[in-house]
Design a protein around this nucleic acid. Structure first.
Lengths: 336, 336
DNA sequence: AGGATTTGCCAAAACGTTTTGGGAGTCAAG
DNA sequence: CTTGACTCCCAAAACGTTTTGGCAAATCCT
């Protein structure tokens, strides 16, 4: 309730001195500083946020855009991640606002609103596209941002991403080593960077092994999308014996397709994301996930460093992918 | 980039007129209004948020506190709910900031920081306790808020809640009707309102049927908590034949306990929340959930109406509970 | 003692809006 | 011609901070 003016008046000091005392400047005597701080503590004074923001020309806010498409929010522990990110930002005086995209508006509109109204000091972007207009816009405005996922932008920007290429390459090679030759890929929408790079990893492994990389079907990054794409692959004349799926959600859909087609026992499958549900499917879903703990803290750190002006090249994290082996990736193979 | 002053200058008008033209006051001529609006559009002018907030004495922000305890975030589609809430708030010019509770600080500290710094116009509280200090604080400060879950506060406050009593009462009666007599309850921490009221519903149904309500074990609202509590009940001399669990997470833990004890086939079980994973457990988990669609929109609406000053009594929503029947609630009963 | 430096404080400006309280000019009625 | 009403615009104040630039008084040096 109290403001600086009242506090100053009650102490018989000027606004300036009280402000500087609270901020710990040393051009106010130790005695006064102590006196001011005690008084502030007693009345529970906290500076008015809007006033400080206006004066300091900083919004003390970071926005994260939440896509509202189906299959929208990728990672499983996304809210935990946001929460942790918000927590770390908070200790630097920044708050995290969530900015969902209303239907009829583009994510770009949202960015524009936040940036041009000077509502935020930085932005956090998730679910990047290969060619991402949000990235281009923010770069043109020179406002700091970090993405979850890379893009094909020519000018580098800060990001955190999993090494989808290596992960899907390795997963495919594992199947090859296990004797599979017809390995299919249930792909996500190729406009998304993550989906594209995962497909590329699968394809490279097939090419290197001299195998046919034509068993690939694309679908929405949802259970239903995975179901339909898997069905398409299973209807091929020479059916795949193993399926590498772009996401766990899609993999769960693929499991449903398998159940319908052949009881689901003959075809091996692997997903990506380590969705909690995967532990409960039957067969339980083998999967992969990005390594690294407390991603939220990493995002917060990158954001703060981006705001501080560190160059983008130093703010890029590419994390290795690790396997979570359960049952679905090693089904008994039918003789060829 | 542009501000009102520059815009006014370029138009040869005063700041006042430009401001009022943009706000649609009718004391500026239609012609000028049009001219101003077009110019504003062209340069992409957006009022500086901090300045407007300072002047209007409104933060244009709503905070939601995120508890970071284990078993923290209750509902399954919580992020979807927040996202939808944020979207609806946004169309009223409010943004939603997420306020996780750092370790070492209480949720009350967080509320205090946001309220006393005048950072928010309202707050959204989740996971209420029977006696909730956050509620008391916000009431004493007179700042609008809505809770997800009731409390035992003597002075009424806006909330949205499921009718846990009726739901758990009905679930228990269903078991009774199916012939069960030893119906246990896997309870969440009784300091939480939801956990308390659910237990009360179970107990009332047992009492009314003249059955012994002593098969009750309490645990953390997590998979592990449910596992331990169920184990405790299963070790009783007269073991329950059915289990009503406070949450799906706990129910899943209880399923694990059942599997360890007797293969999990003899005991019926029901949870609450409709966790997506429940569809994949074995047996698949029967559960309940609060009815009502687009809760996010409801929260947003209550928040806006609370800010507008509507009395708390008119801002309370108690939603019925509906059953989602899968397999776990009707296991073949052993003969008694 | 006289100048230079340091210490402790403060008045005023600035951040960019919105709102208050008019003030010219026009027009119609008396 | 005066009066009143109406239209369209504006100067200035206010919101509560932080920061700039400076001013007395006290302290230090020779």
């Amino acid at each position: 309730m109290a403001n600086l003016k009242q506090l100053a008046q009650s102490l018989g000091l000027s606004i300036t001195t009280v402000s500087r005392a609270l901020d710990g400047y040393d051009d106010v005597s130790a005695a006064t500083r102590k006196r001011v701080r005690e008084a502030a503590e007693k009345v529970g004074y906290r500076p008015n946020a809007s006033a400080r923001r206006l004066r300091k020309q900083r919004a003390e806010l970071v926005a994260v855009t939440l896509p509202s498409d189906p299959g929208h929010i990728g990672p499983p522990h996304f809210l935990d991640m946001l929460s942790s990110c918000a927590e770390h930002l908070a200790s630097a005086g920044l708050n995290l606002v969530i900015a969902p995209v209303p239907r009829g508006e583009s994510e770009l509109d949202i960015c524009r609103r936040f940036v041009d109204g000077q509502r935020v000091d930085a932005m956090l972007l998730v679910r990047t596209r290969r060619k991402d207009e949000r990235v281009e816009f923010l770069q043109s405005r020179g406002i700091p941002f970090v993405t979850n996922g890379r893009t094909e932008s020519l000018v580098p920007h800060p990001y955190i991403d999993g090494d989808g290429f290596a992960g899907f390459h390795a997963a495919t090679v594992r199947f090859q080593v296990a004797g599979h030759r017809r390995i299919g890929h249930v792909a996500g929408p190729q406009e998304y960077y993550f989906a594209h790079v995962r497909r590329t990893g699968w394809k490279a492994a097939m090419d290197e092994a001299g195998l046919n990389a034509d068993l690939c079907a694309e679908g929405a990054p949802t259970e239903q999308g995975g179901y339909l794409a898997a069905l398409e692959l299973l209807r091929q004349p020479s059916r795949p014996t193993a399926l590498v799926c772009s996401t766990d959600e899609m993999a769960i859909g693929a499991l449903r397709a398998l159940r319908e087609i052949d009881g689901g026992n003959a075809i091996s499958i692997v997903g990506h994301d380590d969705l909690p549900t995967g532990a409960f499917t039957s067969p339980s879903l083998s999967t992969m996930r990005m390594t690294g703990e407390n991603l939220g803290a990493s995002f917060a750190s990158l954001l703060l460093r981006a705001i501080a002006g560190e160059p983008a090249e130093e703010l890029q994290e590419l994390h290795a992918i690790e396997f979570i082996d359960r049952d679905s990736h090693r089904r008994p193979m039918k003789a060829a």
